[in-house]
Design a protein around this nucleic acid. Structure first.
Lengths: 201, 201
DNA sequence: TCGGGAGACTCAGTAATTCTATCCCTGTAG
DNA sequence: CTACAGGGATAGAATTACTGAGTCTCCCGA
């Protein structure tokens, strides 16, 4: 099974240029110079022996071949993106697997975080554990525990606990890889945790 | 519209390796060394943060992610190949546009070559012309005419004409780009033309 | 138990590709 | 007439991919 495939680079250049009908705009979108787009498109056209664009004095037009090619290439890109997203979600679309140590679980409501509607877009599953290693090897994305560290290169975020009368409940710690410290999921979970450390006991 | 796309190279390496469950065989298929496949696959795995293969002592296995990714990538490759083939047929699958000069048309049967069943897989259309330029700019793939040349860098093939009694019918010439001189379509058309130059008049 | 072979991994050096930066050209607008 | 916008070409720099050689592990047969 051997495929006849133009290089992806030339296709990206073509797809962007065809969508914008402008090499310059395409270049901006792809973060390169217009010359690079021009080269890539020309390379594609030569390798296929087919002109994709009509270079008119006042702008670009697609040839019939380019017109036919564009939607199919866009579709291929979408499929490829979807396939890739399916097995390797980008940070922003992925749901967290949350680890919770047993002591933290006592403080939090039973079945947290699964019972929280506000977290249902951010949490896939939760597991009772106290094992930092599981963060490193991606079995869980974050770990909620009582102990404050040190955690080396992992990020540890402290959830402030407000005193209730003379009693200050124990602070919780949210441990995750540095790359996940600022993302939507982390913020949502932290926000939810704060509500509990202010209310519980 | 900005897509998140791994490089095509890494995907090709992955796809071939996953199909064969062997870097070495994949390397042979793609005409590179096994080291190159290894590097490309690793690059893909790192960029996605997902292992595609389990490297076992006795061979390769796909991880669940790799298992899920493979069919979708293969499908993308097929779509891409089909899209490309549609607008830029490979020499072997393309049908010729045939040019025929008016003098040659007098010798050949009316409506040749469209009326020939044996050519219907090789000829898309025909047009009456005597303009060599149309071969150069791909408006037609070949030109059938009486004049023998010279044609410079174009290939000119002579269709032998057999005498009938004292009369020798004029020889026909088949002019095409050098790259098309040896392909199936040319052979089929030449073969058909020979029949006519031996029978006509 | 000891080679020998197969196949994957690593790394340094080299080859190939791609990008940038620049200049040119054309057409349009002021 | 001049300025500007955008595409085309090109040389050189930067990046990326490939090769080739050496290493390792496992398996197999003697």
């Amino acid at each position: 099974m051997t495929y006849r495939l133009p290089t992806l680079n030339t296709l990206r250049a073509f797809e962007a240029a065809a969508r914008h009908l402008s090499f310059k705009t395409a270049a901006t979108e792809l973060g390169v110079t217009a010359g690079a787009i021009s080269q890539q498109v020309k390379k594609l056209e030569i390798s296929l022996g087919v002109a994709m664009f009509r270079r008119l004095p006042h702008g670009l037009l697609l040839t019939p071949e380019g017109e036919a090619y564009l939607p199919r290439i866009s579709q291929v890109f979408e499929d490829l993106t979807a396939a890739t997203e399916a097995i390797a979600p980008t940070i922003n679309s992925k749901k967290f697997n949350v680890g919770i140590c047993s002591k933290a679980a006592e403080i939090l409501p039973p079945n947290w975080p699964k019972n929280r509607d506000s977290l249902k877009d951010y949490v896939r599953d939760s597991v009772c554990t106290n094992d930092i290693e599981m963060v490193w090897n991606n079995e869980i994305d974050c770990l909620v525990r009582l102990a404050g560290g040190p955690y080396g290169k992992l990020t540890s975020l402290t959830i402030p606990a407000s005193s209730i009368g003379k009693f200050t409940p124990p602070a919780l710690h949210f441990i995750c890889k540095p790359g996940l410290a600022d993302c939507r999921q982390t913020k949502a979970i932290l926000h939810d945790l704060e509500a509990h450390t202010s209310l519980s006991i």
